[in-house]
Design a protein around this nucleic acid. Sequence first.
DNA 1: AGTGCGACCCGAACGC
DNA 2: TGCGTTCGGGTCGCAC
Length: 272
Amino acid sequence: MPEIAEVETVRNTLKRRILNKKIVNVNIIYPKMIESDIKDFKSILEGRKFIDIGRIGKWLIFDLDDYVLLSHLRMEGKYFIKDSNEALAKHEHVVISFADGTDLRYHDTRKFGRMNLVKKSDYLEVESIKKQGYEPMSKDLTSTYLLDKFKNKKLPIKTLLLDQTIISGLGNIYADEVLFASKIYPLKKGEDLTKKKCQNIVDSSKSIIEKAIEMGGTTIKSYTSSLGVTGRFQQFLQVHKRENEECFNCQSKIIKIKVNGRSTYYCPKCQK
DNA sequence: AGTGCGACCCGAACGC
DNA sequence: TGCGTTCGGGTCGCAC
């Protein structure tokens, strides 16, 4: 599941491979994943080139100078570079061919990913981008900010950490890890968090995401980022996917529960 | 407004 | 070549 660290890894990997190459053909195999007009998608991309790749939260921002291609990988979206003469593989939904005979291919077994091609001058106003909260590595993410966002919130803190309009970029894996590092019970209501606990969330989300990016993200279950890059953060996971295993801190058994429909792992002793 | 939940997908895991 | 069912997960949109 690509979260912010995985998306950052994809961004860095792709930047080295596809910038400034002329796009000569676009093949849309599964049109439903394109949110903008399909005909425009093809005609605008063809003839242009990507001059940079940015990222906001879990959104990749492919910069075409006057347009940007917004791409969200959701759970299993991946990008691959292949020779244009290679046969189309199963689950490849969008193929962007370059003049040098290579393709950028978007692969997504669940078909949950989305792309949206918009004018560059407008993209910060696109709702999905505009509503993103502060990222873990932003200096604007402070305990004061979180305290205000959690005010009057009855929802469990685990659910609030997954709300991209509050903190942008955390997914199910890192939300569990942040709560463990902050020693917070996942079902604790947002409004009951102290400023000190908010500061713990700020500090641990920064350090966990920084470490995860450094490790190239987390490879868990089926998720390997583009071009076969394998993340190495999974060896640092403290609670996620560790049901019935011993807590590294106190040896209690890690418990798995559902929080608003999401699998949640925590240590019953460390996270009261 | 805030909250809850089904829909979108399909491979893997599971039950029999 | 076993087949049918359930589960999961990020986000959206709709219901309450």
